[in-house]
Amino acid sequence: MTVKKAVIPAAGLGTRFLPVTKSMPKEMLPIIDKPVIHYVVEEAVDSGIDDILLITGRGKRAIEDYFDDAPELMMHLERHGKCQQLDALREISRFSGIHFVRQREPKGLGDAVLCAEKHCKDEPFAVLLGDDIMKDRTPCTKQLIDIFDKTGSSVLAIQEVPTEQLHRYGIVKGNESGENLLLLEDIIEKPSPAEAPSHFGSIGRYVFTPALFSCLKRTTKGAGGEIQLTDAIRLLMKQEDVYAYIYQGKRFDTGDKLGYIETIIDYAREDNAMKKDLNLFLRKVMRQ
């Protein structure tokens, strides 16, 4: 059975971006003219997934509104001949099959994923974190699905992490099991450099067998007093193989202020209408 369902946890409080996230979901922060969540959903759809569950929380209604139809606005644009803006709105309509469920209180990423149990039932599913944007010719999630189809096992994407950032990631230990593929032995949530088993950290893309849900139910509060997805993965490893794929594409962490700015600059430099003037501006800034 291949992967046709995706879970996108988007219930976090966004405290690193306060005060703007007091009234605006961090997932709706714009990358030029599209919000972060647009790129995440787009990756799932481009990976062949046609059933997407977004886990939201209190104050996240703007995410639902974004993916809803806007017939009055579209009629207005059509009447005034604003074809480019109209096409941009029509693009959102291809993201059909999106469902929403609310995490009642912020109890951690693991608890948010557990909210998807009834929706996913006994099917494998992808998890895409709403903070991370991946850029590659083949979507990161599609690459993980291809590995799942070959192995029948859960797999997560990893990349090398600088020493000073190890405490921000789930850090893995594993044995080589193919090109850019590790068979996991352990994963530790937010370790100190002395505790870290490697420099490879989980980067917010996963494909899981449904066995993860029973592991999440047995997971107790971990780092930060929350139900950690990493701890559930450790339990899953005890009953079945779990792999880690060393992702070679670009990853942008929009949940970090500097990462957010880097994302905007990268996408702006690929925009034909902006890149010339932006490059001139950046060169001017660098000379100051």
Score class of each variant (00 low, 15 high):
Leu109Thr: 09
Gly110Glu: 06
Asp111Trp: 07
Asp111Gln: 13
Asp111Phe: 11
Ala112Asp: 12
Val113Ser: 07
Cys115Trp: 06
Cys115Ser: 14
Cys115Val: 13
Cys115Asp: 06
Ala116Pro: 04
Glu117Val: 03
Glu117His: 08
His119Ser: 09
Cys120Pro: 04
Cys120Ile: 12
Cys120Gln: 03
Lys121Leu: 13
Lys121Gln: 15
Asp122Glu: 14
Glu123Asp: 15
Glu123Ser: 15
Glu123Trp: 05
Pro124Trp: 01
Pro124Asp: 08
Phe125Pro: 07
Phe125Ile: 06
Ala126Lys: 02
Ala126Tyr: 00
Gly130Ser: 15
Gly130Met: 08
Ile133Val: 14
Ile133Gly: 02
Ile133His: 02
Met134Thr: 10
Lys135His: 14
Lys135Val: 15
Asp136Pro: 00
Asp136Ser: 14
Arg137Thr: 10
Thr138Val: 13
Thr138Glu: 12
Pro139Trp: 01
Cys140Arg: 04
Cys140His: 03
Thr141Pro: 00
Lys142Thr: 02
Gln143Ala: 00
Leu144Lys: 00
Leu144Gln: 00
Ile145Phe: 00
Asp146Met: 01
Ile147Glu: 00
Phe148Trp: 01
Asp149Cys: 06
Asp149Leu: 02
Lys150Val: 07
Lys150Pro: 03
Lys150Glu: 13
Lys150Tyr: 06
Thr151Ala: 01
Gly152Ser: 07
Gly152His: 04
Ser153Leu: 10
Ser153Asp: 14
Ser154Ala: 10
Ser154Phe: 02
Leu156Ile: 12
Ala157Gly: 12
Ala157Tyr: 01
Ile158Thr: 12
Ile158Glu: 05
Ile158Cys: 09
Ile158Ala: 08
Gln159Gly: 06
Val161Ser: 06
Val161Gly: 09
Pro162Glu: 12
Thr163Trp: 07
Thr163Lys: 15
Thr163His: 12
Glu164Gln: 14
Glu164Gly: 07
Gln165Tyr: 13
Leu166Trp: 02
Arg168Phe: 08
Arg168Asp: 11
Arg168Met: 14
Gly170Cys: 05
Ile171Ser: 05
Ile171Glu: 05
Lys173Tyr: 10
Lys173Arg: 15
Gly174Glu: 10
Gly174Tyr: 09
Gly174Asp: 07
Gly174Phe: 06
Glu176Val: 13
Ser177Arg: 11
Ser177Cys: 15
Ser177Leu: 09
Gly178Cys: 10
Glu179Lys: 15
Glu179Val: 12
Glu179Asn: 14
Asn180Pro: 07
Leu182Tyr: 08
Leu183Val: 09
Leu183Asn: 11
Leu184Lys: 01
Glu185Gln: 14
Glu185Thr: 13
Asp186Phe: 00
Ile187Gln: 00
Ile187Leu: 02
Ile188Phe: 02
Pro191Asp: 04
Pro191Trp: 01
Pro191Glu: 05
Ser192Gly: 07
Pro193Asp: 09
Pro193Gln: 09
Ala194Gly: 10
Ala194Thr: 14
Glu195Leu: 10
Glu195Pro: 06
Glu195Asp: 14
Glu195Phe: 02
Ala196Pro: 07
